[in-house]
């Protein structure tokens, strides 16, 4: 029954937490700051009567995070799903990022996921069921001159989830990876964008409805699938002119 959400306190993570709490799932919520996490846990408890545990840990310290999470998830209870709406961007991620910040981006966007999965995978395999959900970004469809390492980490994550499918599916696990378009969150607030922003609540509803049934890579909202195909088909000679 238990669902684990890493990166739960804002944006899509918070919307997923609400949606799963509404569905009656016990939750383990992970985020870096207890000040954001505790209000959310109280809110879900008051509004939906949800059983919520919280783990306040920095996703960049991925090994410690995985260990803390392993302790926080009750060992007797089956894990229904692991969801990873976790991520970080840096404003100056233009290829010249200091090594410490660059490493941090890779740790948060990629290694936090692989460490937690690595730690909890034996439990999922022994229970013979469970869903692992990762989230990518349309920013990683093509390399651009901004969000350089973020996109690289998210593309690595996509590859990691493809491998995870090989590993998990024969053992009864469901592995899904959602490539997300622009979301209407604090990050995109006020910026001019080519395609409309999606409401994180609607994305969360869409993901939770299909939880445990949908597998493989999906684009959300759907129109990013054709947009992605087009974007990837643009030859370099043209693409380099579009890049700003």
């Amino acid at each position: 029954m238990t669902c684990v959400i890493v990166g739960a306190s804002s944006g899509l993570g918070r919307a997923l937490a609400e949606e799963l709490a509404r569905g009656g799932h016990p939750l383990v919520l992970v985020s870096s700051d207890a000040r954001d996490l505790l209000p959310l846990a109280s809110d879900l408890t008051v509004r939906f009567g949800a059983a919520v545990r919280t783990v306040a840990a920095d996703a960049a310290e991925h090994a410690g995070l995985a260990a803390a999470l392993d302790r926080a998830v009750p060992s007797g209870q089956p894990i229904t799903a692991l969801l990873f709406p976790v991520g970080a961007v840096e404003q100056r991620d233009d290829g010249w990022l200091e090594p410490e910040l660059a490493e941090r981006l890779v740790r948060v966007n990629l290694l936090s996921v692989s460490s937690v999965v690595g730690r909890l995978l034996p439990r999922l395999i022994s229970q013979g069921s469970g869903t692992i959900v990762g989230f990518g970004s349309v920013a990683a469809l093509r390399g651009r001159s901004s969000n350089v390492l973020y996109a690289a980490a998210k593309r690595s994550l996509e590859s990691y989830f493809e491998s995870l499918r090989h590993l998990g599916e024969p053992r009864g696990l469901t592995v899904a990876f959602y490539v997300l378009g622009y979301l209407d969150t604090q990050l995109s607030y006020g910026s001019r964008l080519l395609l409309p922003r999606a409401d994180p609540k609607r994305v969360a509803k869409r993901v939770c409805r299909a939880l445990g049934r949908e597998r493989g890579r999906r684009y959300v909202p759907w129109f990013w699938y054709p947009a992605g195909v087009l974007l990837k088909a643009i030859p370099w000679a043209v693409f380099r002119r579009l890049n700003s």
Partner: peptide, 11 residues
Amino acid sequence: ESVARPDRYRQ
């Protein structure tokens, strides 16, 4: 005006 939409206390 410049409008921010914080979603965390530290922001």
